[in-house]
Amino acid sequence: MATHGAPGGPTSSALYDAATDAFRRWRTGEDAALDELVRVMSPVLWHVVRATGLDREATEDVVQNTWLTLVRSGDSVRDAQAITRWLCTAARREAWRVSKAATRTRPVEDDVLAARMPTESSPESEVVTLDDKAVLWAAMTRLPERCQRLLRIVAWEPRPDYSSVADTLGMPIGSIGPTRRRCLDKLRIELGGAA
């Protein structure tokens, strides 16, 4: 169940459609449609930026600045269908600029994963279903950091731009697809066959 608004990801074309539609209406003069776009896409940008390693406070700033950039240069987005990709890419670029400027980056697991991780995962708990989020979370934390970041991005970002993702993760663009596959396979192994 999506308790925090519709999550992104490949299963959620609804989010992509909602964003595209809101952007199109905003560009044709419907001011309130921008609010809709902000509501739909801000949580996505949050996860996309957090996956770059910025802390929560810096992430909030980056998300706000991304929207300001859109409002100031919205004309540069010619194709409404490109809006989600434009926003996510702009957010990553801003995150990169901020992290270079302030070296505020910390690996996500330092401040979140360690604190939230269940203390022990017994063999029994690994065969419970994916609906047990604690089990999935624990499995995620056992993946390499690069896998955690990549999976968070592709889980949240509608139709991600692989070249922009590759820049963020410092990987060749051609390896994003195969790495995504390997990371999902590793996650399945960590889940002990439950998924």
Binding site: R50, E60, L130, L151
Partner: peptide
């Protein structure tokens, strides 16, 4: 389905601040 669950788990464990949208 797995990525959907991953999205959900991040939404739960490292959620966007409740006032993120209002701040924007």
């Amino acid at each position: 389905a797995l990525l959907h669950a991953v999205a959900d788990v991040y939404a739960e464990w490292d959620p966007a601040p409740a006032d993120l949208v209002d701040g924007v």
